[in-house]
Amino acid sequence: MSDKTPKVNLRGLYKIFGARDKEVLKHVKEDGMGKEELLEKHGHVLGLQAINVEMQAGEITVVMGLSGSGKSTLIRHLNRLIDPTDGEILVDGEDVMKLSKIELRQMRQEKMSMVFQKFALLPHRTVKQNAAMSLNVRGMDKATQNTEALKWLERVGLGGYENHYPSQLSGGMQQRVGIARALAANTDIMLMDEAFSALDPLIRTDMQNLLLELQVELHKTIIFITHDLDEALKLADHLVILKDGAVIQQGEPQEILLNPADPYIEDFVSDINRARVLRVRSVMKHLESTEFSGDVEADDNLESLIALSEGDTSLVYRVISEGEPIGELNMRDLVKALVPRISSTQAA
């Protein structure tokens, strides 16, 4: 993690759903009451507890969890579509909770845009008008709205569809409109709430690639919510895993994969194709040998290396990053890294 100030910083965030949320907060904070107990004794639902997450500028922070883990609640706190029961939300070092209604609207217009799971496009407006929605809200002139909307529609691969209506497009294309709408807002921060979950697998892969491609160019601060670990590992610079409203592990995705902190996460990661997700960088050792069978890039995944070695585990490769040798990789270590570490007995 870098030492610069985070773009978005959540500090001690709690959310309890119910009429007397402030009163029952102390049971959670001081007595350590859990979700079930709180519901049983006080009839309040614990949404989020003790959330401390730093989201760095220019990174994709992925918040992953199963349904009911509070991830959608979490993302809605960032632009205060939901107000927290307790805690601080700092955006660019400024406490969002202290904003007035008008300042809050201004922040939503200028600092954050959002992409929704169910697209949430205006059905009575054309694709172009939808893409220009944020500019329209800000009261920009028609010409700017048009050029910006067309530019971003072109960029997400929807050139020529600007005069269609959302219902005339497929799900994947509608979500492209959603992304164009968020990009046209020209905000530093993009919130993506299960943005690709409603799409079929092939389209989803397309959209993930599109997002990564755009990110190389635009360096937005993206907060991405998903319940799909493969998607999370593919996109994340920083991965936050939520369970029952609490963060159970966060960090670099490769790190989480190699050192899961919790049986729950072990179960999670046991099912995925580790060879495809793990990078050479994560399993390499310091340079010791002098004889190498060849050079590999640090950001190559292990799958490509297995293909390169044709399955021969006796080989040792030199790892190169930006032209410099930075380490070595023994194929035996590689095979070891592919075995998921399982401490929990119920895991398959």
């Binding site: 632009n79 579509l81 809050l104 609207r105 201004q106 922040m107 939503r108 217009q109 200028e110 954050m112 845009s113 959002m114 929704f116 169910k118 697209f119 949430a120 496009l121 205006l122 059905p123 929605m133 944020s134 809200v137 800000r138 709408r181 807002a185 919130l191």
Partner: peptide, 12 residues
């Protein structure tokens, strides 16, 4: 969902 989108983009 659409109303929420309106909110998220800062509509009055």
């Amino acid at each position: 969902d659409v109303v929420e989108a309106g909110n998220a983009f800062g509509m009055s």
